[in-house]
Every structure is written in C-alpha cells, then in structure tokens.
C-alpha cells in the first residue's frame, strides 16, 4: 500500500487548507451585532460592513433621515452604536484594504454598494439587464434574490 492512514489524514488537511478557500472567495464575516441586525435588517438585508469604506458608512448613518428616499432616522445613541460597528470593519479598515476598495480612491465615499467599481464589475459582465427588472428582485439592494446565503456573508453562488 502506498498510502497509510496518516498520509490520508495529512492529505485531507492539505485539501482543507488549500482546496476549500480557493472556492470560497466571495465570503464576508456575517454581521453579529444585534442592534445592527435589528435596525438595518428591518428594511433590507444586513449588508456586511466590508462592502463600503468607513467614510461611506459615516455618511449613510449621518443621513438616515433621508435614506435612499425614506426616513430611516434613529435615536442618537442607536445611530452612534451602529456607525461604530460599521466603521470598525469597513472595506478600508485593515492595512491591506478590502476587495471593495479596488478602483476606489481613498477620498471617495460612495453611498451605494452597487456603485462601487468592484460590485459593478462583478455584476455587469454576468447579470443580464432584464434580471434587475424581475419583480422578485425589485432592487439591486436585494442580494438575497440571487445569493441565497448573502445574509450569512456567502456570495459564492455567483
């Protein structure tokens, strides 16, 4: 026999270490903060903070009274708490810079994830225009319409 059980185990580890992450390249840590989940999730999927730079999140939370055409204002304490959470894990929070910083200048602060160059590139080449007008999709903010595990931070099904 060429391989004993130890070799099999070692091979399994190698597969886990290199194989799995190679497929899992569109994953983000799911949001766990209960306030963020409750308040942001009342109207839309709870977007992962890694998808916008810190400046964007600040602008969004400061402008909740006119949030993409709706009044989504919160009391000051709740807003502060949510902003701190989003800014802490923002796309540009780490020294390496997240995927969503690709093509974005350090000073730009887009208000929509769907306006970032990374999101646009990932979707424009693969998603036909008609898909966006499907009533089941309704909005580009409805990630779950196509990425069924998006709320868990998993966008592998692209």
């Amino acid at each position: 026999m060429l391989m004993n059980s130890k070799t099999y185990i070692a091979a399994a580890f190698v597969a886990l270490a290199f194989g799995a992450p190679a497929q899992a390249d569109e994953r983000y840590a799911p949001v766990r903060d209960q306030t963020v989940i409750k308040e942001c999730g009342a109207c839309h999927m709870v977007f992962q903070p890694q998808m916008l730079p810190a400046k964007s999140w600040s602008k969004i939370v400061d402008g909740l009274a006119n949030h993409f055409g709706e009044d989504a204002s919160l009391d000051a304490d709740t807003a502060r708490q949510i902003k701190a959470y989003l800014v802490k894990d923002a796309a540009d929070a780490g020294w390496w810079g997240g995927k969503f910083m690709r093509g974005l200048s350090k000073t730009s602060a887009p208000l929509r994830i769907t306006e970032t160059p990374y999101w646009v590139r990932e979707h424009n080449e693969e998603v036909p225009q008609r898909a966006w007008s499907d009533p089941k999709v309704k909005s580009k903010a409805n990630c779950l319409a196509c990425h069924s595990r998006a709320d868990k931070g998993n966008y592998d099904d692209d």
């Binding site: 109207c43 993409f68 999709v137 309704k138 909005s139 903010a141 779950l144 319409a145």
Partner: peptide, 11 residues
Amino acid sequence: PAAKGQTRAGK
C-alpha cells in the same frame, strides 16, 4: 392589510 408587503429594497 391582510397581505404581506415588500420594502423598496425587496424585503
């Protein structure tokens, strides 16, 4: 009122 609604973001 007895039917489900949908937010503008599709929720």
